[in-house]
Simulated assay, not measured.
Amino acid sequence: MGTATIAPERPPRPRRRPPAKRRRTVRNNLTAYGFLCAALFCFAMFAWWPIVREVILSFQQTNLVDDPTWVGLDNFRTVMDDPAFGQAWKNTIVFTLLALLCGYVVPFAVAIVLNELRHARGYLRFVVYLPVMLPPIVSVLLFRWFYDPGPGLFNQILDSVGLPALAWLDSTDTALISLVIVSTWMNLGSGVLIYLAALQNIPGELYEAAELDGAGIFKRILHVTIPQTRLILLLMMMLQIVATMQVFIEPYMLTGGGPENATITVAYLMYQYAFVYGGNYGAGSALGLMLMIVLLAVAAVQLRLTRDEKR
Rank of each mutant, 00 (worst) to 15 (best):
T225C: 08
L30Y: 13
L231T: 12
V242L: 09
Q272E: 15
I194R: 03
R307M: 10
W48Q: 15
Y207F: 11
T78C: 05
F59H: 05
A32P: 04
L142H: 06
L303I: 11
N201W: 04
F43N: 12
M237Y: 02
A210R: 04
N115C: 04
G257A: 12
A209Q: 11
S171L: 07
L233N: 06
P131R: 01
V65M: 07
S58L: 00
A109I: 15
G216T: 01
G282E: 02
I241P: 01
W49F: 15
L196F: 08
Y268L: 15
A300F: 14
W48S: 13
P18S: 12
A209V: 03
M290C: 09
L117A: 14
G288T: 00
L193S: 07
A209R: 07
G2I: 14
P131Q: 07
A120H: 12
G279S: 12
I293K: 00
L239V: 03
Y207M: 07
R15C: 01
R77W: 01
L233F: 08
L142D: 03
T62F: 08
R17K: 03
T62M: 04
A165E: 11
A111D: 12
V132F: 14
L163I: 05
A286R: 00
A47E: 13
M237D: 01
F218L: 15
F46H: 11
P19T: 11
L73W: 02
V192N: 08
V127F: 12
E9W: 05
E309M: 13
I202A: 07
A165K: 13
L199N: 13
L98D: 07
A175N: 06
L64T: 02
P68E: 02
E260S: 14
A109N: 09
R304F: 15
M290Q: 11
V247W: 00
K310M: 13
L234P: 01
S171R: 10
R118E: 08
G278Y: 14
R307F: 11
T78A: 05
L254C: 07
Y271V: 03
Q200A: 09
I249T: 13
P149C: 11
Y273D: 01
T265Y: 04
R311P: 02
F46T: 11
R27V: 02
I232H: 05
R311G: 14
M238D: 02
G34A: 14
L233H: 05
H223Q: 06
V242E: 02
K90A: 11
E208H: 10
L36H: 06
A44V: 11
M290I: 06
A297F: 04
R311L: 12
L30S: 09
W49Q: 10
L303D: 10
G152M: 05
M238N: 07
F275V: 13
M238K: 08
R307T: 05
V106N: 05
F146I: 08
L234G: 06
F218E: 04
G278Q: 13
L142Y: 06
E250I: 00
H223G: 04
I232M: 15
R118F: 03
E54I: 00
L176P: 03
F126Y: 12
V110Y: 09
A4C: 04
E9Q: 14
F43G: 12
V138Y: 10
L141S: 10
I232R: 00
P164R: 09
E309N: 09
N187R: 09
M45A: 15
P251V: 10
F248H: 03
A299Q: 09
Y147M: 07
A274I: 02
L101N: 08
D81Y: 02
